[in-house]
């Protein structure tokens, strides 16, 4: 996998050293290879999203970067420190937030913040000021003495973030940060993340929500322990899907699917409510031909339009390609 990183400059416009470096990272658990030769470099202030299904290896990579797991092979550096050699130093330079784990529901907002301030050994002099910042950032002014368990998801999440950055870590790891949060809170959360990245914090996010991926500067698509791609969401969406993606809106989706299935030049089909998404090979078929086919079979078509592929579409395509190159044969199957 060769991925060209976008050149990143900090505020002063100077080239900076990469903050996160992974070189041929491998992690095996017994016979199972959870992470398979993953390499990347991430510059200061970048938001990198690790995207992939559960069990793809996202959290294993993150745990290795945090110094919680030792790589079987390869090396990783956080701010220049080798994670395998000096995990303690690494841990002082990172913040970690996972929605499920970090906060104590039976402590108040303030007690949680003081606890994490102690854990991270934030100097007493600056702690009150940092706590105030975290409270304001989370929008919890006036609710400092509320029990955390009584807070709604969005507040908890922002408080967890506040706790994770009390010690001003240069690198922040967010594990599935927005699961269980309503869309509005999620957008607010991403505003905060972007603000932090603007201040030079490097942020690593893991998620299985493809739409969340669009908030990141850089996306790492992970499947079965392998890095399928590493580029910006915009660049990713411009990738060749191997054909043209069409949305065919019609009344009888079921019949349309039956008619289209197996047609020459049709690479993939999926039903979307009142539309069929069809990936076609433009050399072998055209929207007009499909229109004629459906109309001829008395399936009225409202319209056929080319559409921009989603990150999801790209992901599926790339997983398919990876399988083909591994198994040496096309991985098409009918549902």
């Amino acid at each position: 996998m060769s991925a060209v990183l976008p050149e990143k400059t900090d505020k002063a416009g100077e080239r900076t050293e990469p903050v996160l470096v992974a070189e041929g990272l491998v992690k095996r658990f017994g016979n199972f290879t959870a992470v398979d030769h993953v390499s990347f470099r991430v510059d200061k202030g970048t938001i990198i999203g690790f995207l992939g299904p559960n069990g793809a290896g996202k959290s294993t990579i993150i745990r290795m970067l945090c110094g919680l797991l030792t790589p079987t092979e390869g090396r990783a550096f956080v701010s220049g420190t080798d994670v395998a050699k000096d995990p303690e130093t690494v841990r002082q330079h990172i913040g970690y937030m996972s929605q499920k784990f970090s906060l104590y529901g039976d402590l108040t907002v303030m007690e949680n913040l003081r606890f994490f301030g102690g854990i991270y050994r934030v100097p007493r002099k600056v702690l009150p000021e940092r706590i105030r910042f975290a409270v304001t950032m989370a929008g919890l002014d006036g609710r400092e003495n509320a029990l955390v368990s009584t807070l709604a998801g969005g507040w908890k999440q922002r408080l967890a973030l506040g706790c994770a950055i009390l010690h001003r870590p240069p690198v922040l790891f967010l594990d599935e940060p927005t699961s269980g949060v309503d869309p509005e809170s999620r957008r607010r959360f991403w505003d905060l993340i972007h603000a932090l990245s603007g201040e030079g914090v490097t942020i690593v996010v893991s998620t299985h929500y493809m739409d969340e991926a669009e908030y990141c500067d850089l996306l790492a698509l992970i499947n079965r322990g392998q890095l399928l791609a590493l580029e910006s969401p915009t660049a990713l969406k411009k990738r060749n899907l191997g054909g043209t993606l069409l949305s065919i809106e019609c009344a009888d989706i079921g019949k349309a699917l039956h008619l289209l299935e197996g047609q020459p030049g049709l690479l993939d089909l999926a039903a979307f409510g009142n539309a069929v998404h069809a990936l076609i090979d433009p050399a072998r078929t055209t929207p007009e031909q499909l229109f004629a086919l459906l109309s001829g079979a008395h399936v009225p078509v409202d319209h056929i339009v080319p559409i921009e592929p989603s990150i999801d579409d790209i992901f599926v395509r790339m997983v398919g390609e990876a399988r083909e190159s591994q198994e040496g044969e096309p991985g098409r199957r009918a549902g």
């Binding site: 699961s179 493809m210 499947n223 989706i253 549902g335």
Partner: peptide
């Protein structure tokens, strides 16, 4: 994973063809 998700939806659509009524919840807005 997204590939399995697509397969899953294909199955749901074929069930719909067979007259099964499906109520599904999802956290994925897309």
């Amino acid at each position: 994973d997204p590939v399995s998700r697509r397969d899953f939806w294909k199955i749901l659509y074929s069930l719909r063809e067979q007259g099964v009524t499906i109520l599904i919840s999802t956290a994925y807005l897309e």
